[in-house]
Amino acid sequence: MDTYKLILNGKTLKGETTTEAVDAATAEKVFKHAANEHGVHGHWTYDPETKTFTVTE
């Protein structure tokens, strides 16, 4: 398992979190669910070198 990071750049919610996942696709599902639960919808990017997802509203 690897550690993946999410950076939230929402209009009303900003922050960072991490998750352990077997691959980037699994981490993305976890992060998108969490972002949706917090009402953050926007443009997603992924940097494979740093294993970091970013969502920007």
Rank of each mutant, 00 (worst) to 15 (best):
I7R: 05
E49Y: 11
H41N: 11
T19L: 13
T54L: 05
D47G: 02
T50F: 06
T54R: 05
T3K: 09
T18L: 08
G10I: 09
K14G: 05
K32H: 09
H38I: 15
T26R: 05
T12K: 10
A35C: 08
N9D: 10
T19V: 14
T26N: 08
T26D: 09
E49P: 08
G42E: 01
F31N: 00
D2N: 14
E20Y: 12
V22G: 09
T52A: 04
T50Y: 06
D2R: 11
V22S: 11
V55K: 01
Y46V: 01
H43N: 12
E37R: 11
L6G: 01
H43W: 13
H33N: 13
H33Y: 10
G10C: 12
T18E: 08
W44K: 00
A25P: 08
T50H: 07
D2P: 07
T45D: 11
L13D: 05
Y4I: 01
E16A: 08
T52Y: 03
A34N: 07
L6K: 01
T17A: 13
Y46K: 00
T50V: 05
D23H: 03
E16F: 14
K29T: 09
M1I: 10
P48C: 06
K29M: 12
T12Y: 14
L13C: 15
K32G: 04
M1Q: 08
T26K: 05
A34C: 15
A21I: 02
A21D: 02
G39P: 03
K5W: 09
G15M: 15
L13V: 14
F31M: 02
K11L: 15
H33T: 12
G10Y: 08
N36G: 10
A34T: 14
W44A: 01
A24S: 08
E49T: 13
A24D: 04
V30G: 04
T17R: 13
P48N: 07
A35M: 12
N9E: 08
D2S: 14
T17Y: 15
G42A: 03
Y4P: 01
D47Y: 06
V22P: 15
T12C: 15
T17C: 15
T12A: 09
A27K: 00
A34D: 06
D2M: 13
H43C: 13
T45F: 08
A21N: 02
K14L: 08
T18K: 08
T56I: 08
G15Y: 15
G42N: 02
T19S: 04
N9H: 09
E57D: 07
E37T: 11
G39S: 06
V22T: 12
D47F: 05
D47K: 04
G39M: 06
M1A: 07
A21G: 03
G15N: 09
T54H: 05
T3F: 07
K11I: 15
T45S: 13
D2C: 14
A25T: 09
A21F: 04
W44D: 00
K5G: 03
E20C: 13
W44Y: 02
T45R: 07
W44H: 01
V40L: 10
V30E: 08
P48I: 08
L6A: 03
H38S: 12
T52L: 04
T26I: 06
Y4A: 01
Y4W: 04
A27T: 00
K14Q: 12
T19Q: 05
K14M: 10
V55F: 04
N9W: 12
W44C: 02
H33L: 14
T17E: 12
Y46T: 00
N9A: 08
E49D: 13
L6S: 01
T18Q: 09
L8S: 03
V55Q: 01
A34R: 13
T50E: 06
I7P: 00
P48T: 07
T56F: 08
T3L: 11
V30Y: 14
G15A: 14
V40P: 02
E37P: 03
K14E: 05
G15F: 15
A24L: 09
H38C: 15
M1K: 12
F53V: 00
T17S: 10
A35I: 09
I7M: 05
I7V: 10
L6Y: 02
